[in-house]
Design a protein around this nucleic acid. Structure first.
Lengths: 336, 336
DNA sequence: CGATTGCGCGAAACCGCTTTCACGAAAAGG
DNA sequence: CCTTTTCGTGAAAGCGGTTTCGCGCAATCG
């Protein structure tokens, strides 16, 4: 199909022009210490002169290392439309590239432990896999058993020792809630995300903790559950307005729900932030485009991706790795 | 590193259990017609029995086909945070996977014609490349010359015969502008995107065309330029309000600028849609979260990705391909 | 100073699949 | 019935690196 205009250089040529054996070329190109400096120099010179680039497939075949890291999004397409994941991915990609690794993107529900993706991952086609939005971890366990380096983005449900990276949801929610109190709110409600997700649960925990520290007890009436969507935020806020009289502050577990809540408040004839103050989570575009602009908990999403990639690379090097939790930060705008 | 618990099956074993030669196994597995049905059956049975999966690297080395398609985003990380590109990518990924191809993601500025990415692409590491957000096409031309199948997402600047896919920007802008007139607007302005981009120019053209069809001539005062950002939309709208008295409708070339414009209108003490009607482009999340909810031109972004992948696959098959322009559609909400 | 150790290096096997080549058998032609 | 094609097939030569193995040589030891 693709005819190569410039027939790429091979070890054979490098070996010849450098006056060494192919074995030595390989040693130099793979950073083997035990090569005489002179030869190393000769090889490097030949490499540069010939504009040599290693042939991945050949290298992979011989060494078993493909130089490919899969980024697996265990969901259908829609999830990837969330800028969050795209941003994480770009962070991953950058770090991987710097380390001579390529990012293989797989957006697909991981139905079964032996679906096509599973086979792909277990078939040694990649050197490691980074998971987003993991639903069940049966597959992961299998992969782990095969010594496939794994990193999970987001806190996994099971208490297993999977390497993972995540934002400090608890801390962010805690800070947000505290900020609402410090701004004079007395009755602070929360709109939770899907409680089955670890992030949803952690944000609720952070809220509860901050509430207790303020010396009060959060009434059940102040807690309304959503599912991360704008519409669910609007509905949850409507319920709060009805049940929790005197509510004057709301921590929404993500920006989309916060915007929904703002709509509900407006519909009820109240004003943000005068009557009710609002904080979101994620500091996404919608936080910035909302009017009034939404105070939100920012996570450094690119850094999250970078951390994931770094954890992967550490594993590839055979190092032991610890989960990494990234700090979050409150960005104060006009809704508080 | 990764010790394989189950040492994968090879052609040798399949050949033995099927009672044929490795060559025949290869033929069957690659869809060669000239194999006796009996042997084909035997091979397929053996494959299933042994749970065989082809070893990509080996296959790639021998055949020169890697099964990898690069998705190259010629920009820094930030661009990928735009849900637009992520969504396109997910569409691409889905179609590629269905065709046994994998998506290799490369997010990086394509500085030069012989940067690392360029070499990577020219080095036969991938079977094809799909480009986003292409800045200059020197590299593309080179790749094309090497017979590397290429697809560009978005309309390329040069009139070259690159296969590309795009949304009908002209048509969308045209429909949006017409809609504003039909809603009773008399003085319809436009906030353009970056005019140097083909999309920016096409949207302006569509606006002009619709204006002329309405029997009027668009005054220069009604045209303000932005750069796709919310802030630029706000500034552009402020200028329009100042210069173009009587303006009662605005087509913003994307949603972000539309939202910025709405903010400016509100700041000026006017109301949307009563005083000024607004239409955006993209139908992104912000269009849905804006209050009032923004009327916008929707493009089927996933389909755009799918079309890109299909064009790639067609080229891989050696077929001639035509550019593909996808229809856009007006989604009417509360701002018109 | 002979024996042992260790270092640097090349020969060659190998990774798993693809593809060319040539050969025997069956089909077609005379 | 014999020759010429056609068809199906296996043997074997790669594809381009990596890695094991063992050899010569110099440094170290007793």
């Amino acid at each position: 199909m693709a005819s190569k205009s410039a027939p790429r250089a091979t070890y054979a040529e490098i070996a010849k022009t450098a006056g060494v054996s192919e074995a030595t070329v390989s040693r130099v190109l793979n950073g083997d210490e035990n090569v005489h400096p002179d030869r190393t120099k000769a090889v490097n010179a030949a490499v540069k002169k010939l504009g040599y680039k290693k042939h991945r497939a050949a290298s992979a075949l011989a060494s078993g290392r493909t130089g490919l890291i899969a980024v697996v999004i265990d969901d259908d397409l829609s999830i990837f439309a969330d800028p969050f994941w795209a941003t994480v991915t770009s962070g991953i990609s950058r770090v991987l590239m710097e380390n001579e690794l390529q990012t293989l993107l797989m957006v697909t529900p991981l139905e079964s432990v032996d679906g096509p993706v599973a086979h792909y991952l277990m078939g040694g086609e990649v050197d490691g896999a980074i998971f987003f939005q993991l639903h069940k971890d049966a597959l992961i366990k299998r992969l782990r058993k095969q010594n496939l380096p794994i990193v999970i983005t987001g806190t996994p449900h099971s208490r297993s020792d999977f390497p993972f990276v995540d934002t400090d949801s608890f801390g962010g929610a805690h800070a947000a809630t505290k900020h609402l109190f410090s701004r004079g709110c007395r009755q602070v409600g929360i709109i939770t995300g899907d409680i089955d997700t670890t992030a949803g649960a952690a944000r609720l925990d952070g809220y509860n903790q901050a509430y207790r520290e303020s010396g009060h007890v959060p009434s059940k009436k102040l807690i309304a559950s959503g599912d991360w969507s704008m519409e669910s935020g609007r509905a949850a806020m409507a319920r709060l307005l009805e049940k929790a009289e005197g509510i004057d502050g709301v921590f929404a577990s993500n920006d989309l729900m916060a915007v929904g809540a703002m709509a509900a408040i407006e519909e009820a004839g109240l004003r943000v932030p005068e009557d009710i103050k609002i904080i979101g989570f994620d500091d996404s575009v919608v936080a910035q485009t909302a009017r009034p602009a939404l105070t939100s908990v920012r996570q450094d999403i690119v850094a999250l991706g970078e951390a994931a990639a770094e954890l992967m690379i550490a594993q590839l090097r055979g190092e032991e790795v610890q989960p990494r939790i990234l700090k979050s930060e409150l960005v104060i705008r006009e809704t508080t």
